[in-house]
Design a protein around this nucleic acid. Structure first.
Lengths: 162, 162
DNA sequence: CGGCTCCATGTGATTATGTAACATTGTCGC
DNA sequence: GCGACAATGTTACATAATCACATGGAGCCG
């Protein structure tokens, strides 16, 4: 597996982590949610990794950090993060990634590089466009959408050119 | 599990099956593909079911029909159908469904009812819209897209009104 | 025909992913 | 403190998917 850098562009990584944690912290306080140690650790790990992380990989890290060692430990923490918009599940990869725009209104779309597995998050408005039209036409009520594109990220495209 | 009718509208089911099989048949002949008994049976089962079918459910039916009883049997047949556009994988459900528009250019979008699990297929053009814009902006090359909306189908909305 | 190659199939074994159920512990409001 | 409820931990299990290797049939070439 390649995959260390990610997101297609460079970040001030440390700052982006601290900020995301602070945002989550604030959101939980504001909404009476319990941002417990496992959940905090799980979000920290996702932010640190800065890529899509499988539930069982998360479980390993959580065990290393002294938490329980059974699957539900990881799944519950991830479920909490996803439910509250701090993370997203990438269906194509059966993996989870920290949200890149916490707080934003959120109908995310993802671009997944099939070479290096990196994932970038963008916004989408699926209700507009062909899908929304089809939904209105048939009487379907959209509650949530998954939009995931697979392809080649700029970094891998460059390497391939060589 | 509810789920017998599906697709949100009524069909002439028999005719739609025969036609889809014929289309597949023709496509294979034209492209030198081998439309073998397992593959034919698998497509038939998908069309018959007219809903999303898991790989292991497919395996059961194939075994009943006298084919092998190990997972690869189902996965290989499904892989063939998907690769050639006769079926699609619904990532949200880890299940497969017969293509509703075989032959069409194909960038499908799905509407999945969270009550009755029914699935309808629509066309999408993800390259236009917010996602395409983001891809162009970052230099990402889109090869394939997954677009899946979950929500409530008209049938279940009616029942809920009661 | 005989032999070759390629692809498809069958099978056993294993890995990966995800849930159900239930006991225990901790937190919060009263 | 006490009752209600949320969160955690663990056992066990269910579902989904892949690897590796042997067998068998279709088509080609000589």
């Amino acid at each position: 597996m390649p995959n260390d850098p990610v997101g297609f562009e460079k970040h001030d990584h440390g700052a982006c982590i601290t900020e995301a944690m602070a945002t989550a912290e604030a959101h939980c306080r504001a909404h009476g949610l319990r941002f417990t140690p496992v959940r905090r650790k799980a979000l920290g790990l996702l932010l640190q990794a800065h890529r899509a992380v499988g539930a069982y990989e998360m479980l390993d890290r959580l065990r290393d950090a002294g938490f329980g060692s059974q699957p539900p430990v990881a799944y519950r923490a991830l479920e909490f993060l996803v439910a509250n918009g701090f993370a997203h599940k990438i269906e194509r990869l059966n993996a989870f990634i920290a949200c890149a725009h916490p707080g934003a209104s959120h109908s995310p779309a993802f671009m997944i590089c099939r070479i290096c597995q990196s994932v970038a998050e963008a916004q989408s408005s699926p209700a507009r466009g062909a899908l929304g039209e089809a939904a209105r036409a048939t009487g379907f009520t959209i509650e949530r959408t998954v939009v995931e594109a697979t392809g080649i990220c700029p970094g891998c495209a460059d390497k391939a050119d060589t």
